[in-house]
Design a protein around this nucleic acid. Structure first.
Lengths: 210, 210, 210, 210
DNA sequence: GATGAATGAGTATTCATTCAT
DNA sequence: CATGAATGAATACTCATTCAT
């Protein structure tokens, strides 16, 4: 009634939504989106189906909310909205951050992998988050600043500058690409196992690409 | 007397099964196993649902047949049943083979990725193909010959020998691991796009790890 | 071509049909008509489905042929087409015959029981073999000769005459009824188990009702 | 808060389940289990297919629930958990009870007969209700008390005692058997028709075997 | 807000029957 | 005569979503 309780209601609602999303994500990741039933999520979230539909208007809306939230968290975490310039130190810092991110968002990455392997889902996803794709297709030329401060560009630029540092025989595009696939491979492996040698691997990646 | 010989029937049957498996794999990979309906597969294979069940006793049996066949083809293609020893030349050859394999079995890899991300499916898979996992968990010590001539071991051994060639500061386990994740990342990327720079990437991988 | 071979063909055909019917009856009885597939029967009869349809135009036709044949055999075996009069000796003989009949046609009785329990099947059956029902509904008055020489009547008459022999307090209708249900109960039991004491039971039945 | 209490939900659920079971039993008995479709049951119960699966997880589960419930009701009705001793008066009472039971559970007996004629179903049934079989295979020796207070034993014992009353020429095993098959025959007949002479028949049975 | 009963469109699967060879 | 490939209608079962309470 009072503005205070309105606010409180809103917060409670958001907390509950976040909780549902966490529960759902775990099941989507472990059992797959299509095999996970709404009933199952509701039961594990300790509520009825009906109530779940009070928070999310459909199973798909729930999925989208999860993706949206996770992508946002990732973007925020990576703190891309800066000058788009990576110094060598920042590069190392950036890679270590990614490593932490992969570990902490493991369920989300699992889910995302499953979904992105599917052509139509992937197309849908790229419409909403076009920049994400460029993670795997670097190679924008300098001057191409459609998503100017985005990750892909930052990385590409980093390797362009590295070329200048290192001299001619260095192929910056290829190195950016190599770096990306190494990160992807590292991610896939980490998604499963908390291997204690992940630290060593990250050090080596930095060693190779910094 | 019989209008068609047993042999003829058998051959026709096998051809048709292979055809169905191809059609199904494409749809499983593109739309996901759970979203692909048996109806859909049948229609695209130009036959009735009923007939499909003449060839495969269930949707799951079809999936398993596809996986089985693909894994076998991969194993055969990689020709692992040799001495388990990789010379430097063989290593390069091996990497190039893998690259071709990824390109040609693209649909299968897509499907496999989706499935293996799901915990229970993955456990099921590992029961049937235990050695496959070791691809991503190298690090067997010399003398550990549980899957003596398998890929993981071959690779690990290769890097052990490389250590001898290169001297102390070389961490063979870590390098085997790095090599693996690079290959995995390369695979994930290739699964999508026939980028013309895959060749360059492979050359660089050989350059780095041979 | 020649009349002789025509004849031979016909005989072979009939033998084959009888064989199929035997195989089918066994499965119908053991697994139920609806659960037994045409495929199953064909396979167990050592032939293809297609060929079975050469002999019987449908699964139902096969069932009907089996019932028809079995009923005929039973009627023939019981040799009802006589004077409709049962002496005491003939009564005993008749009961012993029934006992043998139950044992030898066990599968058929099993099948029949299953089917007759179903209302619509039963009605269908009664249209085709109206007299069979009277087995369980004796009580036709003398003079009622709708199925004059049939079993039910023979039995009823037997107990009517027995009343005359025995005196007033004997209720012939009730005794005919008692005799019938005893036979039915005996049948149900025999259908399952070849108990060695069946002989004893039959003796006792004769003892009680002769 | 909840518009309906847990208790209310539970009661409604149980009522509805009982109702579905009644409807289903009628159809299973009249048309046979395999020919009765879930759709058909649902329509006659005035609900959607989907809802039926809310109550029973499968058609087979529904069948099992029906059997379970009916068997329990029968056992309860027959009140076997007493001293296992039948006086002459109790014997008469017992037989009359059975007669009522048969009339009231007609549908169930019809269904059971159909099912038990099928070998595999019967085996399954005997695993769950082993004692039921002994109804038709009396003849346990005194001292054999595997199902000590069960019906079969009670009956057998009754006839053993009757032998003592009556003298040597009386074969107690055979008489128990005769009694059983008479009851079975009576049951089979009653299952169909409410003949008004059932009362007379029961009187005669008591007369003969008490 | 909260529940779970209820729906119905959809999905895998079965099987009698037909038919080209 | 003989085969089994092929069909399609039917059937059990699932599940996202709605709704009365």
């Amino acid at each position: 009634m009072s503005p205070r309780s309105q606010q409180q209601f809103k917060e409670m609602r958001e907390e509950k939504m976040a909780f549902i999303m966490d529960v759902a994500l775990e099941h989507f990741a472990n059992e797959g989106y299509y095999r996970t039933t709404v009933n199952h999520i509701a039961r594990h979230a300790g509520m009825s189906k009906g109530l779940m539909y009070n928070y999310f208007e459909s199973k798909e809306a729930l999925l989208k909310a999860i993706i949206h939230k996770s992508v946002n968290e990732i973007y925020k975490y990576l703190d891309l909205n800066r000058d788009g310039y990576l110094s060598e130190e920042e590069f190392e810092f950036f890679v270590r951050k990614i490593s932490v991110l992969i570990k902490e968002k493991r369920y989300f990455w699992r889910l995302l992998m499953q979904l992105l392997m599917q052509n139509d889902v992937r197309e849908q996803f790229l419409k909403v988050y076009p920049e994400s794709d460029s993670l795997m297709h670097p190679g924008h030329e300098p001057g191409d600043n459609y998503y100017p401060l985005q990750m892909a560009k930052m990385i590409t630029d980093y390797f362009l500058r590295k070329k200048e540092r290192t001299g001619n025989q260095f192929d910056s595009k290829r190195e950016a690409n190599m770096f990306f696939i190494t990160i992807v491979g590292f991610a896939v492996k980490s998604i499963y196992s908390d291997a204690d040698d992940n630290e060593k691997t990250i050090n080596r990646i930095i060693d190779l690409y910094k």
